[in-house]
Write a protein that binds this DNA or RNA. Structure first.
Length: 432
DNA sequence: ACGTGTCAG
DNA sequence: TGTTCTGACACGT
């Protein structure tokens, strides 16, 4: 019996993921990094967050503290880079723009991943995957892999196969993988390789004798729902080819916004924390403005390092703002409510502020949105502005205070140039 | 409604 | 010395 015309090609989902994104972005502008073991470090140069294949081959794990790697870096020829979010953000935008040309149905899932709605059969989808992979490599300069399947969960799984199995050459189409190959791959794959399944769930599944993806696919879906959650049941159904996780609309607002950071050096006084909270208040305000949002509730917190032998403390205060606001001064003042809870002498390792109950800034004409005071403006000018309007005392920190080098600011000793976003850091090409 | 636990990247 | 940061959501109360 012939299938109805509309059923000929079920919609499919292509999952595109940049290979070890941060490391690849670094390489795109520094060819000398090609072929060498390379790690990109977290904020404060704390630990490795991205590893090139060569670094993985050395046995370096993600999350490995830099202070443990540094002594052996020379012997390994290992290069480390501080994270350069401006560069990564710009490269990401280029990748996403390019992907948008291949499907109008694009969901940007993270800085280096996207889902694309696509249609077709093996004869067209496989070439499409290759085209996308080659185009991103050529036009943006970073390597990607592509997984294509009827569901998001399977598309992510195919992407993983495309990455790990050279035979796929970077593109894996679920329907083109022979059934016996699928089965043998699934029978060897631990459940925690699946999107949405991590340590805790794995432990509980193992207790029930479910160790591999094949075990999970064969499990009773209703039992999974009752003993675990509807979320895990959706995963099971998705693994069987039934779409349960829809493509998301582009998220405009957020539910909350957090600004938090560990310090390069601990801060041990309320005065120091005052400065930190002032800066965070400014930056949070700028982020709110950028998204056209205002906050009704602010929570400020600080914490001692859990890794040190000392008394621990996690003070926090929650301030309900009288009016929804994105005003840097009001936010900073509210954040300062934490200060009375700070014990001088205790070494705080991190602090932050969290804004919740966010809402779009109303009573603002559409025109004003485009020429928002804080938009497109760096923190420096903003601080200047605030200091000029209200005096330094008002926010407890003048611009000079920053320039004179506060010791708590982030450590990023090995950051590469911001090649694509700062004129004075443009890469220079020399012709012989 | 709110805090806690879990996960992702 | 030193171990990221941000955001979402389900669940239990």
């Amino acid at each position: 019996m012939a299938k109805p015309a509309l059923m000929r090609h079920m919609p499919q989902i292509a999952h595109v993921d940049v290979n070890c994104f941060y490391a690849s972005a670094e390489r795109a502008f520094d060819p000398s990094l090609e072929g060498r073991p390379l790690v990109v470090l977290s904020n404060n140069d704390g630990c490795a967050v991205t590893r090139s294949p060569e670094a993985k081959a050395l046995g370096i794990t993600t999350g490995e503290p830099w202070f443990k790697l540094a002594p052996r870096a020379k012997e390994w020829g290992l290069v480390a880079k501080s994270s350069n979010y401006e560069l990564y953000g710009d490269i990401s935008a280029r990748v996403m723009e390019l992907l948008g040309r291949y499907s109008a149905w694009l969901e940007v899932y993270s800085i280096d991943e996207a889902f694309l709605g696509v249609k077709g059969d093996a004869g067209t989808l496989l070439p499409l995957g290759r085209t996308i992979k080659d185009a991103v490599r050529r036009h943006v300069g970073v390597p990607v892999c592509v997984g294509i399947a009827p569901t998001k969960t399977l598309a992510k799984l195919c992407n993983k196969w495309a990455k790990n199995n050279p035979a796929f050459d970077g593109v894996c189409l679920w329907e083109a993988v022979p059934h016996d190959v699928r089965d043998s791959l699934l029978a060897r794959l631990p459940v925690d390789e699946i999107w949405g399944i991590a340590g805790r769930l794995t432990k509980r599944l193992n207790v029930l004798g479910i160790f591999t993806v094949q075990d999970l696919v064969r499990a009773d879906a209703v039992m999974i729902r009752d003993r675990f959650s509807v979320v895990l049941m959706r995963t099971v159904l998705e693994l069987r080819g039934t779409p349960c996780i829809p493509m998301e609309e582009e998220r405009i607002g957020r539910d909350q916004l957090i600004f938090s950071r560990s310090f390069a050096t601990p801060v041990a006084s309320a005065d120091g924390l005052r400065q930190v909270l002032s800066i965070y208040g400014q930056q949070a305000s700028a982020r709110l403005s950028k998204h056209g949002l205002q906050a009704k509730v602010l929570t400020a917190f600080a914490a001692t390092s859990p890794f040190r032998q000392q008394e621990q403390a996690y003070p926090s205060v929650c301030v309900s703002l009288p009016m929804p606001t994105a005003d840097p001064l009001l936010l900073t003042r509210a954040a300062h409510a934490l200060l009375p809870h700070i014990r001088d002498g205790l070494k705080y390792a991190k602090a932050g502020i969290m804004l919740t109950d966010l809402r779009p800034s109303g009573n603002q004409s559409p025109l004003e949105l485009f020429e928002n005071r804080h938009e497109e403006r760096g923190i420096g000018p903003l601080l200047d502005d605030v200091s000029r309007r209200f005096g330094r005392g008002a926010i407890g920190l003048g611009h000079a205070g920053i320039k004179s080098g506060l010791d708590w600011t982030m450590k990023r000793d090995m950051r590469s140039p911001r090649y694509t976003t700062h004129w004075d850091e443009l890469p220079v090409v020399k012709a012989a």
